[in-house]
Protein backbone atom coordinates (compact mmCIF):
# COMPACT_ATOMS: atom_id res chain seq x y z
CA UNK A 1 0.00 0.00 0.00
CA UNK A 2 1.64 3.23 -1.07
CA UNK A 3 0.80 6.70 -0.01
CA UNK A 4 -0.99 7.39 -3.22
CA UNK A 5 -1.88 4.63 -5.60
CA UNK A 6 -3.17 7.09 -8.12
CA UNK A 7 -0.83 9.46 -9.93
CA UNK A 8 -0.68 12.97 -8.56
CA UNK A 9 -2.60 15.62 -10.41
CA UNK A 10 -0.52 18.44 -11.86
CA UNK A 11 -1.25 20.72 -8.98
CA UNK A 12 -1.82 18.89 -5.72
CA UNK A 13 -2.71 20.70 -2.51
CA UNK A 14 -5.99 20.85 -0.66
CA UNK A 15 -9.04 22.00 -2.53
CA UNK A 16 -10.08 23.99 0.52
CA UNK A 17 -9.68 27.71 -0.05
CA UNK A 18 -8.24 29.89 2.67
CA UNK A 19 -10.74 32.69 3.33
CA UNK A 20 -9.65 36.30 3.06
CA UNK A 21 -9.26 37.86 6.50
CA UNK A 22 -11.97 40.26 7.67
CA UNK A 23 -11.27 43.99 7.72
CA UNK A 24 -10.53 44.15 11.46
CA UNK A 25 -7.82 41.52 11.21
CA UNK A 26 -5.85 43.88 8.98
CA UNK A 27 -4.98 45.86 12.12
CA UNK A 28 -2.66 42.93 12.80
CA UNK A 29 0.33 41.71 10.78
CA UNK A 30 -0.54 40.28 7.35
CA UNK A 31 -1.24 36.56 7.26
CA UNK A 32 -1.92 36.30 10.97
CA UNK A 33 -5.52 35.17 10.59
CA UNK A 34 -6.91 32.34 8.48
CA UNK A 35 -10.41 32.38 9.99
CA UNK A 36 -10.02 28.88 11.31
CA UNK A 37 -9.71 29.27 15.08
CA UNK A 38 -12.37 26.57 15.49
CA UNK A 39 -9.86 23.92 14.38
CA UNK A 40 -7.81 24.71 17.47
CA UNK A 41 -10.88 24.53 19.71
CA UNK A 42 -11.56 21.13 18.19
CA UNK A 43 -8.01 20.13 19.07
CA UNK A 44 -8.59 21.08 22.70
CA UNK A 45 -11.84 19.12 22.78
CA UNK A 46 -10.03 16.05 21.41
CA UNK A 47 -7.14 16.43 23.85
CA UNK A 48 -9.37 16.87 26.90
CA UNK A 49 -11.51 13.82 26.23
CA UNK A 50 -9.10 11.85 28.38
CA UNK A 51 -8.74 14.64 30.96
CA UNK A 52 -12.38 14.78 32.03
CA UNK A 53 -11.36 14.67 35.68
CA UNK A 54 -10.26 18.30 35.46
CA UNK A 55 -13.83 19.17 34.52
CA UNK A 56 -15.24 17.36 37.52
CA UNK A 57 -12.95 19.19 39.94
CA UNK A 58 -13.65 22.53 38.24
CA UNK A 59 -17.35 21.94 38.70
CA UNK A 60 -17.22 20.83 42.31
CA UNK A 61 -14.89 23.51 43.66
CA UNK A 62 -17.48 26.33 43.74
CA UNK A 63 -20.16 23.87 44.84
CA UNK A 64 -18.06 22.94 47.87
CA UNK A 65 -17.61 26.62 48.70
CA UNK A 66 -21.33 27.20 48.35
CA UNK A 67 -22.20 24.36 50.70
CA UNK A 68 -19.49 25.15 53.27
CA UNK A 69 -19.89 28.92 53.38
CA UNK A 70 -23.49 29.36 52.23
CA UNK A 71 -25.13 26.65 54.25
CA UNK A 72 -22.59 26.26 57.07
CA UNK A 73 -21.44 29.82 57.70
CA UNK A 74 -24.73 31.23 56.42
CA UNK A 75 -26.56 29.73 59.39
CA UNK A 76 -24.47 31.95 61.67
CA UNK A 77 -24.44 35.05 59.46
CA UNK A 78 -28.13 35.26 58.64
CA UNK A 79 -29.54 37.39 55.81
CA UNK A 80 -27.54 40.22 54.22
CA UNK A 81 -28.75 43.25 52.28
CA UNK A 82 -28.93 42.39 48.56
CA UNK A 83 -27.92 44.71 45.70
CA UNK A 84 -31.17 46.67 46.01
CA UNK A 85 -31.07 46.81 49.81
CA UNK A 86 -33.61 44.01 50.31
CA UNK A 87 -32.32 41.33 52.69
CA UNK A 88 -31.43 38.01 51.02
CA UNK A 89 -30.15 34.73 52.51
CA UNK A 90 -26.34 34.56 52.86
CA UNK A 91 -26.13 31.63 50.39
CA UNK A 92 -28.04 33.68 47.79
CA UNK A 93 -25.55 36.50 48.42
CA UNK A 94 -22.35 34.52 47.87
CA UNK A 95 -23.61 32.17 45.12
CA UNK A 96 -23.41 34.79 42.33
CA UNK A 97 -19.98 35.77 43.67
CA UNK A 98 -18.84 32.17 43.43
CA UNK A 99 -20.30 31.97 39.92
CA UNK A 100 -18.25 34.99 38.86
CA UNK A 101 -15.14 33.57 40.55
CA UNK A 102 -15.63 30.20 38.85
CA UNK A 103 -15.82 31.90 35.46
CA UNK A 104 -12.64 33.80 36.30
CA UNK A 105 -10.70 30.82 37.66
CA UNK A 106 -11.52 28.51 34.76
CA UNK A 107 -10.65 31.11 32.15
CA UNK A 108 -7.43 32.22 33.84
CA UNK A 109 -6.22 28.69 34.46
CA UNK A 110 -6.73 27.68 30.85
CA UNK A 111 -5.29 30.80 29.33
CA UNK A 112 -2.22 31.00 31.56
CA UNK A 113 -0.87 27.64 32.79
CA UNK A 114 -2.16 25.58 29.88
CA UNK A 115 -1.19 28.09 27.23
CA UNK A 116 2.27 28.58 28.72
CA UNK A 117 2.88 24.84 28.66
CA UNK A 118 1.84 24.60 25.03
CA UNK A 119 3.87 27.68 24.12
CA UNK A 120 7.16 26.75 25.79
CA UNK A 121 7.24 23.00 26.27
CA UNK A 122 4.86 21.34 23.85
CA UNK A 123 5.81 23.64 20.97
CA UNK A 124 2.21 23.17 19.89
CA UNK A 125 1.95 26.58 18.32
CA UNK A 126 5.07 26.09 16.23
CA UNK A 127 3.35 23.11 14.67
CA UNK A 128 0.10 25.02 14.23
CA UNK A 129 1.82 27.95 12.54
CA UNK A 130 3.18 25.62 9.84
CA UNK A 131 -0.44 25.29 8.69
CA UNK A 132 -2.59 28.11 7.30
CA UNK A 133 -3.44 29.17 10.88
CA UNK A 134 -1.83 32.35 12.21
CA UNK A 135 -1.32 33.94 15.65
CA UNK A 136 -4.82 35.43 15.64
CA UNK A 137 -6.32 31.98 15.03
CA UNK A 138 -4.26 30.67 17.95
CA UNK A 139 -5.33 33.49 20.28
CA UNK A 140 -9.00 33.15 19.33
CA UNK A 141 -8.89 29.35 19.39
CA UNK A 142 -7.33 29.07 22.82
CA UNK A 143 -9.49 31.80 24.31
CA UNK A 144 -12.51 30.17 22.69
CA UNK A 145 -11.68 26.91 24.41
CA UNK A 146 -11.21 28.64 27.78
CA UNK A 147 -14.60 30.21 27.17
CA UNK A 148 -16.28 26.94 26.34
CA UNK A 149 -14.91 25.40 29.51
CA UNK A 150 -15.99 28.43 31.52
CA UNK A 151 -19.48 28.13 30.06
CA UNK A 152 -19.73 24.48 31.12
CA UNK A 153 -18.72 25.34 34.69
CA UNK A 154 -21.12 28.27 34.81
CA UNK A 155 -23.96 26.14 33.49
CA UNK A 156 -23.27 23.44 36.05
CA UNK A 157 -23.05 25.92 38.89
CA UNK A 158 -26.21 27.73 37.80
CA UNK A 159 -28.02 24.39 37.86
CA UNK A 160 -26.79 23.81 41.41
CA UNK A 161 -27.92 27.31 42.40
CA UNK A 162 -31.33 26.54 40.93
CA UNK A 163 -31.45 23.32 42.91
CA UNK A 164 -30.72 25.19 46.15
CA UNK A 165 -33.40 27.78 45.27
CA UNK A 166 -30.83 30.56 44.95
CA UNK A 167 -31.99 31.92 41.58
CA UNK A 168 -34.35 34.60 42.84
CA UNK A 169 -35.38 36.13 39.50
CA UNK A 170 -35.97 35.17 35.84
CA UNK A 171 -33.13 37.61 35.01
CA UNK A 172 -30.87 34.78 36.22
CA UNK A 173 -31.18 33.28 32.74
CA UNK A 174 -28.88 36.07 31.56
CA UNK A 175 -26.24 35.03 34.09
CA UNK A 176 -24.96 32.40 31.67
CA UNK A 177 -24.17 34.77 28.79
CA UNK A 178 -22.83 37.25 31.34
CA UNK A 179 -20.53 34.55 32.71
CA UNK A 180 -19.31 33.99 29.16
CA UNK A 181 -18.42 37.65 28.73
CA UNK A 182 -16.60 37.57 32.08
CA UNK A 183 -14.70 34.41 31.14
CA UNK A 184 -13.84 35.90 27.73
CA UNK A 185 -12.39 39.01 29.36
CA UNK A 186 -10.28 37.09 31.85
CA UNK A 187 -9.12 34.58 29.21
CA UNK A 188 -8.07 37.33 26.80
CA UNK A 189 -6.10 39.24 29.42
CA UNK A 190 -4.72 36.00 30.87
CA UNK A 191 -3.43 34.92 27.50
CA UNK A 192 -1.90 38.33 26.84
CA UNK A 193 -0.15 38.16 30.23
CA UNK A 194 1.10 34.65 29.50
CA UNK A 195 2.96 35.87 26.43
CA UNK A 196 5.13 37.93 28.80
CA UNK A 197 5.87 35.06 31.19
CA UNK A 198 9.45 33.83 31.21
CA UNK A 199 9.28 30.90 33.63
CA UNK A 200 6.92 29.06 35.94
CA UNK A 201 8.02 31.40 38.76
CA UNK A 202 6.16 34.21 37.03
CA UNK A 203 2.92 32.34 37.63
CA UNK A 204 3.10 33.23 41.31
CA UNK A 205 2.07 36.65 40.05
CA UNK A 206 -1.09 35.12 38.60
CA UNK A 207 -1.97 33.61 41.96
CA UNK A 208 -1.11 36.92 43.58
CA UNK A 209 -3.63 38.66 41.33
CA UNK A 210 -6.37 36.03 41.48
CA UNK A 211 -6.51 35.06 45.14
CA UNK A 212 -7.02 38.56 46.65
CA UNK A 213 -9.71 39.22 44.07
CA UNK A 214 -11.46 35.99 44.97
CA UNK A 215 -11.35 36.81 48.69
CA UNK A 216 -11.91 40.56 48.73
CA UNK A 217 -13.88 41.58 45.61
CA UNK A 218 -17.21 41.34 47.50
CA UNK A 219 -17.54 37.61 46.84
CA UNK A 220 -18.30 36.84 50.48
CA UNK A 221 -19.48 40.16 51.96
CA UNK A 222 -20.74 43.51 50.70
CA UNK A 223 -18.56 46.47 49.73
CA UNK A 224 -19.93 48.49 52.68
CA UNK A 225 -17.62 46.70 55.14
CA UNK A 226 -14.60 48.57 53.71
CA UNK A 227 -13.49 52.14 54.39
CA UNK A 228 -13.91 54.38 51.34
CA UNK A 229 -10.29 54.19 50.12
CA UNK A 230 -10.39 50.39 50.15
CA UNK A 231 -13.73 50.48 48.39
CA UNK A 232 -12.11 52.40 45.54
CA UNK A 233 -9.39 49.77 45.30
CA UNK A 234 -11.91 46.94 45.23
CA UNK A 235 -14.02 48.75 42.63
CA UNK A 236 -11.02 48.81 40.33
CA UNK A 237 -10.79 44.98 40.34
CA UNK A 238 -12.32 43.16 37.39
CA UNK A 239 -13.85 40.47 39.59
CA UNK A 240 -15.81 43.13 41.50
CA UNK A 241 -17.60 44.08 38.29
CA UNK A 242 -18.25 40.44 37.48
CA UNK A 243 -19.75 39.85 40.92
CA UNK A 244 -21.95 42.96 40.64
CA UNK A 245 -23.19 41.73 37.28
CA UNK A 246 -24.00 38.23 38.51
CA UNK A 247 -25.52 39.34 41.79
CA UNK A 248 -27.80 41.81 40.04
CA UNK A 249 -28.99 39.16 37.60
CA UNK A 250 -29.54 36.25 40.00
CA UNK A 251 -31.34 38.42 42.56
CA UNK A 252 -33.31 40.43 40.00
CA UNK A 253 -31.87 43.82 41.03
CA UNK A 254 -31.24 44.85 37.42
CA UNK A 255 -30.31 48.43 36.55
CA UNK A 256 -28.69 50.36 33.72
CA UNK A 257 -25.42 50.78 35.63
CA UNK A 258 -24.76 47.11 34.93
CA UNK A 259 -23.87 48.06 31.37
CA UNK A 260 -20.89 49.83 32.89
CA UNK A 261 -19.75 46.57 34.51
CA UNK A 262 -20.24 44.85 31.18
CA UNK A 263 -18.16 47.39 29.30
CA UNK A 264 -15.27 46.79 31.73
CA UNK A 265 -15.10 43.30 30.25
CA UNK A 266 -15.53 44.42 26.67
CA UNK A 267 -12.42 46.54 27.10
CA UNK A 268 -10.57 43.58 28.63
CA UNK A 269 -11.57 41.41 25.66
CA UNK A 270 -10.39 43.85 23.00
CA UNK A 271 -7.15 44.83 24.72
CA UNK A 272 -6.35 41.22 25.67
CA UNK A 273 -6.97 39.87 22.17
CA UNK A 274 -4.93 42.51 20.38
CA UNK A 275 -2.00 42.25 22.80
CA UNK A 276 -2.07 38.43 22.77
CA UNK A 277 -2.11 38.20 18.97
CA UNK A 278 0.66 40.76 18.55
CA UNK A 279 2.84 39.17 21.17
CA UNK A 280 2.36 35.69 19.70
CA UNK A 281 3.39 37.13 16.37
CA UNK A 282 6.59 38.49 17.90
CA UNK A 283 7.31 35.34 19.91
CA UNK A 284 6.60 32.74 17.26
CA UNK A 285 7.25 34.39 13.91
CA UNK A 286 10.84 35.45 14.40
Amino acid sequence: MTLRDVPLPDVAGPDVPVPRPPAWARLLPAGSYAGRASALVLRSVTASRRAWLAFVSGFFEPVFYLVAMGQGLGALVGPLPGPDGQPIPYAAFIAPGLLAAAAMNGAVFDSTFNVFFKLKYNRLYDAVLATPLGPVDIALGEIGWALLRGALYALGFLAVMGGFGLLLSPWALLALPAALVVAFGFAAVGMAATTYMRSWQDFDLVTLAILPMFLFATTFYPLSVYPRWLQLLVEAMPLFHAVELMRGLTTGAVHLGMLGHLSYFLVMIVVGLVVAARRLDILLLK
Binding site: P14, V16, V18, A30, G31, P132, G134
Partner: peptide, 10 residues
Amino acid sequence: DVDGPRIRAR
Protein backbone atom coordinates in the same frame (compact mmCIF):
# COMPACT_ATOMS: atom_id res chain seq x y z
CA ASP B 1 4.77 38.47 3.48
CA VAL B 2 1.38 38.86 1.82
CA ASP B 3 0.02 35.36 1.27
CA GLY B 4 1.47 33.36 4.17
CA PRO B 5 -1.68 31.36 4.95
CA ARG B 6 -2.30 30.57 1.27
CA ILE B 7 1.23 29.31 0.77
CA ARG B 8 1.23 27.32 4.00
CA ALA B 9 -1.99 25.64 2.86
CA ARG B 10 -0.06 24.03 0.00
